[in-house]
Amino acid sequence: MNIPKTIALLASLLAISTQIHADAVGKDVYSKVCVTCHATGLAGSPRFGQAADWAPRVAGGMAGLYQSALNGTPKGMPAKGGHITLADADVKAAVDYMVAAAKLPKSEPEARKEEPKKAEAKKEEVKKPEAKVAVIAPVVPPSEAATALATTASAADANSFNRLLKPANKRNLPPPEDGIHDPANDGTHALQPPLTAFGSLPKSLAGNRVNWVEAIAQKKINPRYDRNDPKAEPIVMDLNIVREVKGSMPDVVYPHKQHTEWLDCSNCHPAIFIPQKGANQISMAAILLGEKCGVCHGKVAFPVSECRNCHSKKKDMAKVAIPAEAGK
């Protein structure tokens, strides 16, 4: 047995097997991910097996294609096809698979000079949102040190003051800092930070810290009532329901007016509230558990910490409560 020959044979076998493996991976990734767009040419993507679509792209060099696939392009290719968890090698294998399927005539690319340009353009793309963030950042945390301190304190110290209360520097944070958006995602940096939108809106002490009802009343915002028709007017029903409550809390005045500005009757009736006097058992416990009023209040509408927004009719005063105040 000739040892060097055996080694060479094994090496070539290994090379072939890895090549076969890469092809299989490429096909697999294509059929699971890329196919969504590249089968039909969605968003102007090069179609699978269409030489004409692929030729100009391959002319730019495979390195450029890999770059586009891995990092995305401004034209619409998402980084790694939007599947960030894919390994780089698997993405490249999928590119190879698609290029091979296009069956292009073999020719070495000339236009390699284009690549660095493309890459630079991409870098700028990435930089832009960062710059935006830098502009916005001073608006939110007055002092970075204080933020850091507050974070560590709330995370580590079980006896910190007002443990569950949102401190001022943790309110209305821009998406990359809000703890649920992924800062590693490019799109996160393109999203509007809440404070840039809330600047001109009337304030409140809870929730988004915006008084949404007042924002409509003052015509600061005019959200559409119909998906397509910006001029559609809401069907408003002005009817207050007074609910007498036990104990010393003021009675609840429920204003249909402020609710029908936003909602359709069918949003609440009859699934959440039976439209009949005395048919609905409502308790604060139910609300806090997300039922009845708690379907919205405590999630998107003002939270239950704003007691007097609802409990607004004093018991000893027989006079009518101020209905307009009820929804604020």
Binding site: K166, D178, P194
Partner: peptide, 9 residues
Amino acid sequence: PVALRAEYG
């Protein structure tokens, strides 16, 4: 900690 910082709603 996550819920604390996310925007309401």
